[in-house]
Design a protein around this nucleic acid. Structure first.
Lengths: 206, 206, 206, 206
DNA sequence: AATGAATGAGTGTTCATTCAT
DNA sequence: AATGAATGAACACTCATTCAT
């Protein structure tokens, strides 16, 4: 945001970034939603454009190709998810309730498995793009891991690999995609609570 | 009416060429692998055919269209997974070790989130096809749920919804898709053990 | 039907002609019906085979390819039409009534315009095949023309080119394909009578 | 809200390139010709595209699918035929000569039987598309019927069903497709005259 | 800043045809 | 006499991408 106009043509990093942010943000939001809902292949640039009320060519005006749009869109949602999560985990109350809250948030947004989407999209992305997305994802996991680490240090939860714990925690949340489960239990809120409770107490009787 | 009705009525034409189901099974196996690895859209019938060393038209000889092939392929892997799992869960030893074994098996096979794949493919499948796949999937979950149910009855694990438990358990296994995790820990075997342990003991300190 | 077994391999003319006539005739009849109903392209050999309860390969056993089957099928129906027409035109009664009868017959069978079908099929036929069909068609027209010729000689109808007359006569019969007309008038019989009357009296008032 | 609402709101982006409808009309004309010559199935979009010097994808840019192109193409020729016919039938001179003129025009254009083509295409068209084409066709028949009606009222021709008359009249014109006839008589003009004369005077001697 | 037009490469699907049995 | 298996060529259709304006 600072020294943008200094260099005449800065190649790496976020590519085209001129244009009224209005339209660009609109495209980004729409694309994010569609990608998270349908995955990489199923979303056509035509559909993104239509949903924004612009033409395909306009999308290309802001994003050099589908891979770039996908990358920015994912970084966009990861950023939001991260920010939301920071607010929640740093909030007050016992860890377990904060985790339930995080679970509720995630299960309300993500519709398709992140890993599966990446597996689908990776072949079309540049290495750099994959790395950037991975970084965004890692940030989220590092955030959760740090929370777990702290909780272990304070004896709030028992000892284990915090990073693995973060992955297991988020993996569990994909249960929300399974219709039978969520329908049976009616509300996302209830499901998320149950899952966290399950994870919290473990299988072993005590 | 001569000597025709004496013999078991040998059907005319080229006999079913004992080695022939080979091709069909070959296609089925290949398709299963590719679909589980890349999802529905990404797998082209061309690629399936090529991987089998036959032509696209040959695939159509055995399966009337992509949706049909997909359906049979998934039922194929679900059947195998179910059979494998039956063997393991009915085996000897403590539940926890049997679950680790199941986890190891699953993580060695499934590459992409089942739900995500179904979400991708559903629009192209007939209702009946979706139902058949769902049934196959349910069978697996019912199997696990019954195991959990029994373990609860015997006080081996603490009480909770066994079906939800089954979904959470399988969801956790998708962690294997996340390269960093599995790579860091080197072996699928170790990861699966750690995950089951995590699930077993829960987060709460005791 | 006579000196078939004399020469070892007689190439020209009707090609393969072994096999139980049963099946062959069945295929011929079925194909005739389908071709007359749907035209050349729309009829797949698969559909012919299925309608006969045999396999595609069996069709090939009797007819070397689609063009050959088409040719034989058309000659088959033309022969029948010719025979039927001979019976009618040589019958008793005034010409006008015999023509109405011919009209009724034709309109009951032919569903698609002969010329249009030939235009569709010609590019796939050999010159010889086209000629043979044309000959069969011509025979029908020559038959009608001879009838007209005789009627003119006897002063039963006024003088004109008998061959053109035959073509005009048969062309008029295609009116039967136009649903509105035939539906309005309810019966094929009535329509054919009306058409012949129209042709008979002409437009000019007298 | 500044100086925006003053100007007639010049739409952004590349203007409609005055010469551009060229391509669409070109495709329409070419398709019309090919469909009228070869029918629905035989015309591939590839061939249409090639004949226009564009790619298949360009055809799809203007027409959403083959059925749509077919519909527009037929409406296009029906419109032209209607307009031409209006000019002729409303012209001066005796009805018989005007009909000869109409015959000459039609026989110069239509190459395949309309009904047969519709029978071939209908299964692929939407109901609405079929209706639109039928409407266009009916318009032509109603036009001719009205001419006949008037002529009957004025005693110029003898009484009969004017709509049937229109169908018979146009059916007769398909004689032009039969090569032998038209070739024998050398010119379309002469054939059309002869046909109309035949229809005019009828078969019955006077 | 945004667009209409055009394209090339690919996808699922169909079908006539062949051949060993 | 009849068949199961396999194929190649075509076809309708989609989509990411480019470019002049």
């Amino acid at each position: 945001m600072t020294s943008k106009s200094e260099q005449p043509k800065r190649r790496p990093g976020r590519p085209k970034a001129t244009g009224s942010p209005q339209t660009m943000v609109q495209i980004l939001k729409t694309a994010s939603f569609l990608f998270m809902e349908q995955g990489y292949e199923k979303v056509s640039l035509e559909s993104v454009a239509q949903a924004c009320g612009v033409t395909k060519a306009s999308v290309y005006y802001y994003f050099s190709n589908k891979a770039a749009l996908f990358t920015e869109a994912l970084l966009f949602v990861l950023k939001i998810a991260h920010d939301q999560t920071v607010l929640i985990v740093n909030g007050p109350g016992p860890l377990r309730e904060r985790l339930s809250e995080v679970a509720k948030r995630h299960m309300g947004n993500a519709h398709i498995d992140f890993e599966t989407m990446m597996r689908e999209a990776s072949p079309e992305l540049t290495e750099e793009q994959v790395d950037r997305i991975r970084d965004g994802e890692q940030a989220l996991h590092r955030l959760l891991a740090s929370v777990f680490r702290r909780a272990m240090d304070e004896g709030e939860i028992s000892e284990s690999d915090p990073m693995l714990l973060s992955h297991v925690f988020t993996a569990t949340l994909t249960v929300r995609n399974r219709k039978e489960i969520v329908n049976d239990l009616q509300t996302v809120g209830q499901t998320s609570s149950e899952i966290v409770q399950l994870l919290w107490r473990g299988l072993e009787p005590r």
